[in-house]
Design a protein around this nucleic acid. Structure first.
Lengths: 347, 347
DNA sequence: CAACACTCTGGGAGCGCTCCCATATGCTCA
DNA sequence: TGAGCATATGGGAGCGCTCCCAGAGTGTTG
């Protein structure tokens, strides 16, 4: 970086402005602005001069000044309401974050991360979003009654959900094929001769959990097995809830021979409960989880599970959002990404 | 939100400005600005009138305009150079993020998340930071030769590292007590009668890995055990590297009776290699990991490990950074947070 | 050669805010 | 009573940029 003497006087290390570039290049501000923004209508000659001046001064546009006049912020928010503090235990979130970040990485867009835990933080967020401080919002882990989603819907601000609130979600969303994945899991269990297949569902106020449950039922139906109420227990995606649910299931139907849990963590809990009850896995009871998180590889035995493309979800969410920001009138989009059974030793 | 008719004409749903608030309240812009920023020198009466007007109009300050004049951005960046794509497998990162976010949550500061994977992204980041687009930087997972850290040092921009580049780190940092934790691990092993204690170190271009190794050596010395070169192998924190290192160690010293791995993931890999070699854990070989990540709870047997206070690290990092931003002349700070041995079944 | 249509270019206006200075107001004290 | 001071207030200037329009320059056509 050349010391050009062209610095604005006084303030010392002040950053060069558009104006300074224009002066050095001997052109007007308009031309420099056009070059910086890649706008048409600039002669090659002028462009070259300006580019040289920019390089010489090490000019970087002032984003605040630009935002002030365009009222675009070039930032999007990734909102994670993690009431259940799943951020840490579920690599899912980290993978989605990575996907979003990588999709944004050759964009001017900044990624703002907003974790919402308490009601107070939720209130603050509402003020924040109505303050137009971002161009769009990605919202993860949505429950059926998610006030933030409702706000987004009301304000019409560009937004994409990770997951959906119900089958007839009105906002754009990206969702893994929960139903298909669960069906595949059950099919796998039935295919290996299991006939009393239980399930541990997630919290049923989340559409993801409901879809997995529905997939379980369809899978049973396909296999010609009938659904038995005592073979269904509900957890909250946590390991502990999985092991409690498993205990209840064993109590109700000691003769069950397989269980499909709607998350790896619950499946891990279930495996612990099974072992405590003296069942061998998979000989006595086969277990399938959902997520393909790290724990699935480290349980004993390694867990058969359903992989969801988390990073791809993040990427797709970001892409849809950028699309929507670029053209706010573009229609809402829905994307359902395929899931895949990962056979390991537990089933 | 009351429809006040006070809207600026034409544009429709334009947001109210400071000016509009001032008009409605019948005061000058200066007074409104003082109220909004909690500055002194406003009469209670004026304050009340202004506050009412703000509420009535639903006024939210325009951050870009403020940034333009103050040249504070009210944003900090959390930079995660994750060349080894550890983000997903190491809950550590997620926990730190959460700590940072929670410390920031009752601040006006925004958290920008920047993941750096490729060299290109690194270059972009440098431009980004020199563009003064954030008030400060948190940098995670630093290697000894980290160009970003060097840039931060050169520019004098407020920054706090998570970890440190060397023992005599010149930037502010927050570090877990790696040395103490490793020592405790070895002490634990020696205390249960192990005498041929091996270690699997992390990549030695990271101070964290070096400190853990040093702790191992001190632990041995304390226990009156001598260090044996064949009992030391190096990994890269990954599971695979742990299992390879373990294989090498077994090869060199089949009679080893304990191993301390510098990460849980490597410890998990080591356990797999040990089992493949027909060793029982902990009867034949005791294993201690480091991190207390989720995998530690799911290995077979559950892993004894050293807990590092990740979330607390994030919180502390954020706190130090805010301090530094508020007073750029405040001295560099160093914080070393305690680690703690978590005894489980593997040792 | 005039009339017109382009393409480029410069720079005024203004985005919404903070900073700061001039001024007004209300006291206290000699 | 008036000087002197602290406190409160209004509003001009200006942050760095984009938008937009007027005008210069260059062809093209009848």
């Amino acid at each position: 970086m050349v010391d050009s003497g062209e610095r604005s006087a006084g303030r010392g290390s002040a950053r060069p402005t558009l104006e300074a570039v224009a002066r050095l290049a001997g052109v007007g501000r308009g031309t420099v602005s056009r070059v910086v923004n890649g706008a048409p209508g600039v002669s090659d000659q002028a462009r070259a001069v300006v580019e040289r001046a920019i390089a010489e001064l090490g000019y970087v546009p002032n984003r605040a000044a630009r935002t002030l006049v365009t009222s675009r912020t070039d930032a999007i928010a990734l909102v994670i309401p993690e009431t259940e503090s799943r951020l840490a235990s579920e690599p899912f979130f980290a993978e989605v974050i990575r996907g979003v970040a990588s999709e944004l990485s050759d964009t001017e867009m900044q990624l703002l991360l907003i974790l919402v835990r308490t009601q107070r933080e939720r209130d603050r967020l509402v003020g924040y979003l109505s303050g137009h401080r971002v161009d769009g919002v990605l919202l993860l882990s949505v429950h059926t009654e998610e006030p933030i989603a409702e706000l987004l819907e009301r304000t019409g601000m560009p937004a994409v959900l990770g997951g959906r609130r119900s089958e007839r979600e009105t906002l754009s969303y990206v969702d893994p094929d929960n139903l298909g994945g669960a069906r595949a899991a059950v099919r796998h269990l039935a295919g290996s001769g299991r006939v009393r297949i239980a399930t541990i569902t997630g919290p049923l106020d989340m559409e993801g959990a409901r879809s997995r449950f529905e997939g379980y039922r369809q899978g049973l139906a396909e296999a010609g097995l009938t659904e038995v109420p005592e073979l269904v227990a509900t957890g909250d995606f946590s390991e502990e809830s999985g092991s409690q649910a498993m205990a209840r299931l064993l109590d109700a139907r000691p003769d069950l021979d397989a269980v499909f849990a709607a998350s790896d963590l619950m499946a891990a809990g279930a495996m612990r409960a099974l072992r405590q009850a003296g069942r061998r896995i998979p000989e006595d009871v086969a277990v399938v989880g959902f997520d393909d998180s790290v724990v699935a590889r480290h349980t004993d035995p390694p867990m058969t599970t359903v992989r969801q493309p988390s990073e791809e979800m993040g990427r797709t969410m970001a892409r849809l959002l950028l699309e929507r920001i670029a053209d706010p009138d573009s229609p809402r989009r829905r994307a359902v990404l395929p899931t895949e059974l990962v056979p390991r030793a537990s089933a």
